[in-house]
Amino acid sequence: MANIVIDRIKKSFGAVDALKEVSLNIGDGEFVSLLGPSGCGKTTLLRIIAGLETSTSGDVRIGGKSVVGLPPKDRGLAMVFQNYAVFPHMTVFENVAFGLRMQKADAGRIKKQVEKAAALLHIEPYLDRYPNKLSGGQRQRVAVARALAVEPQVLLMDEPLSNLDALLRLEMRTELKSVLQASGTTTVYVTHDQTEAMGLSDRIAVMFNGRIEQAGPPVEIYSQPATRFVGGFMGNPPMNFIRLSVQNGAVALGSARHPVPQFGGTEIVLGLRGENVARTPLEEGLRLEVRVAEPMGSHLLLTGTVEGQPVRFILPASETVKSGELIGLKPDLDRLTWLSPETGEALSRPTA
């Protein structure tokens, strides 16, 4: 296996900068997701790592060796695509063996590696079948098995589960995590689905507008977003952002005042996850004007306004709240995020 160093990679298409000096270190055997909305540059970065796209400047090193200028076949990697890309005229065995045959592996190694990869992906019963006799989830398993059979240093995956229905995605996500933990392959995974990224990754690199906004473990990305974009992109519902007035270094959170980081402004933005509140008497907490109350089975989702600003909060399913009601909510003071209204960047926690 191998580590990957992405060093100040820039990619321009004419006057448009698709990537703006992106840097990221990926450890040996680590699973890192490139997460972000369409057009953020995540697939362009993956294609540069793969050698399918040429960077304008910067360096990519795999296992300590620069791969800039090397063709994809000489980079020691394999790719799994969104559309499976299995060969319909080949059996599952021949599909899984394809990369090994391109390497001119001997028959004994081909048989051993195909059987090993098939066992990992639980497709041993289908080795003699053709792809048209398989389900979508089974075809995707074949594509992953073909990539793993060549024992690549690096596995690159571009939205590999997006063509599957919801139940199959959940099943494949579980299988994929188990398989890649067993193989120890360094993996870079492109997705726009935060649930996939949270569930699969050792670390997530959240991308926006050609830059990495934040890179870190999933729980850290979720609970301590570095920017307003990260907080708003991660989570369902996304983080609430409430603009509050600062007086004497503190803001009013219901009947109490709470210290905020010193940054010199008269207003600050409070970032608050929907689940990090509890119901409290109206005079003691944030005043939520409930517009819609939606029982979701496991919880109650409330949509409304605080200080005239749109918010969504989650309460236990046992709570009774009606649309149009005015209720008090007490924030968990250990889980507040403070952001600059001007830059959208997170501020350090207050010392008091």
Rank of each mutant, 00 (worst) to 15 (best):
G99Y: 01
Y126T: 04
M239Q: 07
F229C: 04
K177L: 14
V22I: 12
A226G: 13
T305H: 09
L121T: 15
V246G: 12
I123N: 01
T43M: 06
E124D: 11
A117F: 00
V290T: 05
R109C: 02
Q262Y: 08
V306L: 15
V277M: 06
C40F: 03
P238Q: 06
G51S: 08
F81Q: 08
H89Y: 13
T320N: 03
A346V: 03
R257L: 11
V96L: 14
R228W: 08
P261G: 10
S38H: 02
A182M: 08
V311D: 02
G265D: 14
G265H: 13
A256F: 11
A50Q: 09
F13E: 06
G232W: 06
D332H: 11
G232D: 12
V32Q: 02
L168K: 06
K42L: 09
Q262N: 14
Y189P: 02
C40E: 00
S255G: 01
R61Q: 15
G231C: 09
P281D: 14
F313L: 15
L200K: 02
A252N: 09
D193T: 08
P217H: 02
A352I: 13
S201N: 08
I212H: 01
R228A: 15
G324S: 09
L34H: 10
Y222Q: 02
V230M: 09
N163M: 05
M198K: 05
E307W: 01
G137R: 03
L77W: 01
N236V: 09
R273H: 07
L19M: 14
L121R: 11
K133D: 13
L24P: 04
L302G: 01
D128Y: 00
R75L: 12
I268S: 12
G210A: 02
K11Y: 05
L45V: 13
Q224F: 13
L35Q: 07
G324M: 03
G108P: 02
L24R: 05
D74H: 06
H299V: 00
D165S: 04
I9C: 11
D74A: 14
V311E: 05
F263G: 08
R211M: 10
L156P: 08
V60L: 03
K177W: 09
A119L: 05
E53M: 11
K322L: 10
V154L: 12
